[in-house]
């Protein structure tokens, strides 16, 4: 098997007396969709915030492509090729799709030292990306405010792709979506992996996860309690891990 894109070793995160993550080991590979599951408060969001550079771990180590890294801010993580799509999408509704995809790193040409936008080129690039993703959005100059929730997810995914992200983290991307839109976003998630991205997906929806993920990791009370390939498990088993009814979890929790 290939070297993992990201390796987390013994990640622990304490908030004062509360241990939100305890000694989590995890590997994430390119071309793979990894789902994080777990009950409310299990530590999923805390874990991805560590990966995204939003929280510094209290203990443990992250390695990106074999090299130890320490992220002080989301910018550091982005520089390492990790893009995060937070549940509350960071898009400017008053700007166009193309403008949003490029915001903060526009294509420009310098005329007498003044940076002028290359609008046509940016629009074309975003148009191509949208077609490639089969996002069913025809006009890259439409305002993001006029898009549906699923289309906005697609724009956020485009933005991550355009940043040349090697790993994309999505926190409950389908939580607020209707059935058809959910399908589309799951499809996009798959497409990201096909393009060679490592994808980390948080979801409470077991059937969504079974549709799209190659591997599943269950968190419970800040610990990783299970890791399964999709082909080697069932929804029932995963639910048992999440609720703590599974014999393995009971055994694990006795040794705490």
């Amino acid at each position: 098997m290939t070297e993992p894109f990201l390796l987390a070793k013994g990640i622990t995160k304490r908030f004062g007396a509360l241990t939100a993550l305890s000694n989590v080991d995890l590997e994430i590979r390119r071309g793979e969709v990894l789902a994080l599951l777990g009950d409310n408060g299990a530590g999923k969001s805390t874990f991805i915030k560590v990966l995204a550079g939003a929280h510094a771990p209290s203990d443990g180590q992250l390695l990106v492509e074999g090299h130890p890294v320490s992220f002080n801010s989301p910018k550091d993580a982005a520089a390492a090729g990790i893009a995060t799509i937070f549940q509350e999408l960071a898009l400017s509704e008053n700007l166009s799709i193309a403008e949003n995809v490029f915001l903060g790193r526009e294509m420009k040409r310098s005329v007498f030292g003044v940076p002028f936008l290359k609008r046509a080129e940016m629009k074309k690039r975003v148009g191509d990306l949208l077609v490639e993703l089969d996002a069913h959005i025809s006009d890259p100059s439409a305002a993001v405010g006029s898009l549906s929730g699923g289309q906005r997810q697609a724009v956020a995914i485009c933005r991550a792709l355009n940043l040349n992200a090697k790993m994309v983290i999505m926190d409950e991307p389908t939580a607020a979506l209707a059935v058809a839109e959910t399908r589309k976003v799951l499809e996009l998630t798959r497409r990201l992996a096909t393009r060679g991205c490592a994808v980390v997906l948080i979801s409470h929806n077991i059937s969504d996860v079974f549709e799209v993920a190659d591997r599943m990791v269950v968190f419970r009370r800040g610990r990783k309690v299970a890791e399964r390939l999709r082909d080697q498990t069932t929804p029932e088993e995963i639910v048992a891990f999440i609720t703590g009814a599974h014999a393995d979890v009971r055994a694990l929790e006795k040794t705490r």
Binding site: A90, S92, E93, L103, G104
Partner: peptide, 15 residues
Amino acid sequence: LAVGNSEEKARLQGV
């Protein structure tokens, strides 16, 4: 215009 829409979102987008 992005800042005018939402300062926080613009910041997260790298503005």
